[in-house]
Design a protein around this nucleic acid. Sequence first.
DNA 1: TCTTAATCGAGACGGTACGTCGTGTCTTTCC
DNA 2: GGAAAGACACGACGTACCGTCTCGATTAAGA
Lengths: 214, 214, 214, 214
Amino acid sequence: MEDELHDDGAAVREPLDAVEAPEPRRPGRRRDAAKDAAIVAAAHQLLVERGFDAMTMDDVAERAGVGKATVYRRWTTKVHLAVEAMTTAIPALTLDAVPDTGSLRGDLMTIPALIHRAREDAATDLLGPARDHPEIADQLHQRLARDRVTVLRGLLERAQVRGEVAPDRDLDLIAVVGPAVIFYAKAFSGEVFSPELLERVIDGVVLPLALLRP
Amino acid sequence: MEDELHDDGAAVREPLDAVEAPEPRRPGRRRDAAKDAAIVAAAHQLLVERGFDAMTMDDVAERAGVGKATVYRRWTTKVHLAVEAMTTAIPALTLDAVPDTGSLRGDLMTIPALIHRAREDAATDLLGPARDHPEIADQLHQRLARDRVTVLRGLLERAQVRGEVAPDRDLDLIAVVGPAVIFYAKAFSGEVFSPELLERVIDGVVLPLALLRP
Amino acid sequence: MEDELHDDGAAVREPLDAVEAPEPRRPGRRRDAAKDAAIVAAAHQLLVERGFDAMTMDDVAERAGVGKATVYRRWTTKVHLAVEAMTTAIPALTLDAVPDTGSLRGDLMTIPALIHRAREDAATDLLGPARDHPEIADQLHQRLARDRVTVLRGLLERAQVRGEVAPDRDLDLIAVVGPAVIFYAKAFSGEVFSPELLERVIDGVVLPLALLRP
Amino acid sequence: MEDELHDDGAAVREPLDAVEAPEPRRPGRRRDAAKDAAIVAAAHQLLVERGFDAMTMDDVAERAGVGKATVYRRWTTKVHLAVEAMTTAIPALTLDAVPDTGSLRGDLMTIPALIHRAREDAATDLLGPARDHPEIADQLHQRLARDRVTVLRGLLERAQVRGEVAPDRDLDLIAVVGPAVIFYAKAFSGEVFSPELLERVIDGVVLPLALLRP
DNA sequence: TCTTAATCGAGACGGTACGTCGTGTCTTTCC
DNA sequence: GGAAAGACACGACGTACCGTCTCGATTAAGA
C-alpha cells in the first residue's frame, strides 16, 4: 500500500499468475528489512516524544543504530519518513476489525479502542509539510481519515440492511461527520478524545441523522 | 485583541480620560506603524504562496522592505508572526455581519462570502508549530474556529426564538458540525470549499439536526 | 595580498590620493576582524596537529568559538581556509629581514631561523587539493617558494655588487637550487631540515655555483 | 617489488623447478590477474584526469568493470591503490637503460624521454596522504625520487672514472640537485618539464658542480 | 540647540539541521 | 572461495534558516 513511497529497491514484481517467471533477482546485498523497522520505530518514538520539528534525522539514525545514508536510501526526505512512521504506527482499519454488535449504536461505541491519541497529534504536524508532496499527503489522508470514514460507512450500510438506517440517507456525508467533529475539537480547542465526547457525537449527531424517524 | 502577542513597545497606554496623566512618553524615535502593516502583508503573501515552512524571515523582511530586527522587535518568533498574519487576514466574524434573512437556511447560505479559502490552507500549517505556544494556538483557534462557531450558534438561537429550531437541541454541538465537516474535507482530501459542499452540509446535516421534525 | 582569496566584504577601496572620497561604507554590521584571526589560528593549530584531511570545518568553527557560517562567509572552501592558515602562519619574508653579515656565506647561514618546519609538512598536503583552484595554488606558491627564492636572489645580488659573485652567473637558477634541494629531501626521504643539511647545501652547491673561481 | 603492498593472496609461490611439490593450492577460485591490471589502469586514468581527492573508489571499480570488494581485496586503502597506480605507471629506471654517450653532458641530455609528466602531477597529491603510511611513502619515494637519483649518481661515477668529474666531489648531493630543481619548479610554479629547463639545469648547475675546473 | 534614547536597514553572527557523498566493510547470489 | 552488485556504519561537507547582535543613520523628546 505504501509501495509508492517506500522504494523497496526490488524489480517490479511479477504478477502472481506468472508462475514460471524465475524471479530474476538482481545481485547485491538486499536491503535489510529489520533496518526498515528499526528506523520507522525510532522515527515514531521521536515524533511522539518531541514532535516533527524537533525530530532530527541524525537522532533517528542513531536511535535506530543505523547510518544516515541508510535512512535516506529508503526515504528521500524527513517528511517522507515521518509520514511513513505515523501511518505505520496507526494500524490499517478495516470493517472486519469492528465486531458486529447487532445495533448501530453498539457498533459505534466500540470505536474508542481503535484510536491512538498521541500519534494523531504528531500527524497533524505533517499536514502542512506534506502539502508539497501530494503522494505523501495522500498516504497521510488515507490512514488518518479515509480508512476510518470507510469503516464507518460500512457500519452504516450494515445497519441499513438491518433496517435500522433509513434507505434515503447520504451515508457518505454521515460517515464523515463523526471523525470531523472529533478532529475539529482536538485541533481547535485541544479537547482530547474521550468516550464522553464520542458518546455526545454519536447520540447528538450520527444517530439522529442516520436512524429512521420514530 | 492581539496585544499579548504583538508587543507594542510603548508604555501601557493610559485611558483616554486620564487627562492629568502627563504621558510619560520615552524619548527616541517612535515605531512606524506602516512597518507593521508592511510586515504582516509580506508574511501573509509568503504564507499563501509557499506555506509556513518555506516562508523565511529574511524573505519577509526583504519583501516588506524592512530589516530583520524590525520584524523581531514586533514579533518574537516566526510562529507569532505567521499567526498574526493569518488571523489578521481573516476578518473577525460577528453575528451582526450576517444578514437576518428570516429563515435558518437562508442565513446559513450567506456564509460562503465570509470564507477566504487560500488563507485557511496556510493556517493548517500552523496547527503543529503553534502547539508549543498555547497563547498563540489560542489566537489561531479563536479566528479560525471559535468565532465561526459562535456566529453559527447565534444563528441557531435566532432560529430557535423564531420557532424554527426545536427547543431541546444541543446547539453547541450542532454549531460545530458544519465547520468541522468542511475543515475535515479540506484537510484530508484536499476538497476545496465550494457552495455545493456547503449546501450539502446544510441540507444533509445542519438542518436535519436542528429543525423541528415534521 | 590575499585580497583575492579573502573576500573582504568591503567596497573597492579608494586610491590613497583620492582625499575627498568620503569612503562610502556600506551599511550593516562589519565583519569582526577578531573572528578572522580566531578562525585562522584554529585552522592552523588543527592543520599542524592533525594534517589537512583530519582537520574538520566543524572543529575549526568550534575551536574558534564561531559558527560554521562565519567560517564559510570568509572562505568558500576548506582548501581556501587551509591555504590561508598556512600562508598566514608563515610570515612574509623580505630581504630587509636578513641581516647583512658582509659575506654571502654569512648571510645564507642566518636562514634557519626563518624556517618553520611543522607548517611546511602541512603545506605539502595542500599542493594537491589546491591544484584545482589556481588562485589558491598561487598564494601557496608565493609564500612557500617564491618569497624565499626572491630573498635569496637579493642576497646573491648584494654579493654580486660586493664583488663576491661572478657577474655572469644565472642568479635566478642559483637562487632556486637551495630551497629545491631542501624541499626535495624532506618530501622524498623525510629528511628533516637541519643546520647540517643547510650547510652542506650552501658549501656544496650554492657557493661553488655563485662565487668567483679562485 | 610491490609485494609488501600488493597482497598476493596466494600461497608463497614454489620455485618453478620444485616439480615434486604437490602444490598445496587452497581451494576456491583463483584471483584473476587481469583484474589487477584493469584496476590499476582505471585508477591511473582517474588519478591523471582528476587528481587524488576527486578520484573515487566507486569510480575506479566501475571503470575497471569490477566490484568494490575486488579492489579492496587487493589494496587495503585508496592511498595504497593510488601509490601502486602511480608507481606502476612510472617504469623503474635503471642505469642500464641510459645509453653511454661518452660524455656526462650527452648522458644527461638523454633523460627527457624517461620522464612522464602527467603522472608526476598526480603523484604530488600523494605526498600528504602517504605520510601516515610509512611503507607507502617509501614506495612512492623510491620510484619518484630515489630511482632517479641513483641513476644520476651512476652517471656521475661513470664520468668520474672517465676523468670528467673531479674526484673530490659530493656526488650524492650533485645527483639530487637536478631532480630537486625540476620538481620544485613544477610543484611551486606549475612550470612544466621541458627540454629547455633540463638544459638550463644541466649547464647551469650540474655540470659546473661536477666537472673539473678548467 | 544639543543631548539622549529609541527605531531603522543592512547584514554579521552562533547554533544547528539538512541532505549528499566518500571510505572501507559486509552480505547476497552466482560461478 | 572469488566475483559483481550494492547495502551498510560512520562521519565530513557545504547550505540554509532562526533569532540575536552590531553598525551608522535617522528621528523625536527633553534640557
